[in-house]
């Protein structure tokens, strides 16, 4: 048995273990699930160490002697006090230090998600499609205005917004299903091709 065959066998074993959940919850699935959690977390540890800890903590402090970095490093270590009953308040410092960036979020989210979107929405209505988009945007915004009861003529207008949203949700759903089917096809191709050699 070649090394590649052993590798494929291992991958096929875990693939089939996960698929076994389609029948019902069973020890093979639980084993694979537990392994998946551990391996995923274990995979992150060396990557974070080599790609973040070494260049941004170890190198500045121990090689470049930029000792000011000791402050954020010590602040970061305060995270572990999250598990202490009496000292959990210390873990707030690294959290709030990261949270402060929210100040930039106020003008930037207003700009990117509201102003830019409004500017794009205010294009000339020169064909039927731009008219449909305009009507959809307005009726959806009216739907989300809850200060007025959705009754009578206003209710009928907001209903059009619901229709638009349903089309949008349907399109998103269709895309999600196709992405999952694509992954499924990939796994079936692996089992039938790479592992069992039943197809080329």
């Amino acid at each position: 048995m070649s090394f590649e065959a052993i590798s494929n066998f291992v991958a096929a074993f875990f693939t089939l273990s996960i698929f076994s959940f389609l029948y019902k919850d069973n020890p093979f699935y639980k084993f694979a699930e537990a392994m998946f959690v551990g391996v995923t977390m274990g995979y992150a540890i060396p990557l974070v160490y080599y790609n973040t800890f070494i260049p941004f903590v170890y190198r500045p402090i121990f090689i470049e002697h930029n000792f000011i970095i000791l402050i954020p490093a010590l602040m970061g270590s305060l995270y572990i006090f999250r598990f202490s009953k009496n000292l959990s308040w210390l873990s707030r410092y690294p959290i709030v230090f990261g949270m402060a960036i929210i100040g930039m979020g106020v003008p930037l989210s207003m700009h990117a998600y509201v102003l830019v979107q409004m500017r794009i929405a205010m294009m000339p209505i020169d064909n039927i499609n731009t008219f449909i988009i305009f009507v959809g945007t307005i009726t959806i915004l009216l739907y989300f205005f809850f200060s007025k009861a959705h009754k009578g003529v206003y209710g009928k207008i907001t209903n059009i917004g619901i229709w638009y949203m349903m089309v949008g949700f349907g399109a998103s759903f269709g895309y999600t299903v196709m992405a999952r089917i694509s992954l499924l096809i990939g796994r079936i191709q692996f089992l039938m091709g790479d592992w069992l050699h039943l197809m080329k």
Partner: peptide, 27 residues
């Protein structure tokens, strides 16, 4: 057509609501 027209309108309408929500929460 669905993706480029009604879906775009839906995404834009919802996106504007999400944007206002994000701004309000950040504030």
């Amino acid at each position: 057509w669905i993706l480029n027209v009604p879906n775009l309108a839906a995404k834009r309408g919802i996106g504007l609501g999400v944007g206002l929500g994000m701004t309000a929460t950040s504030l």
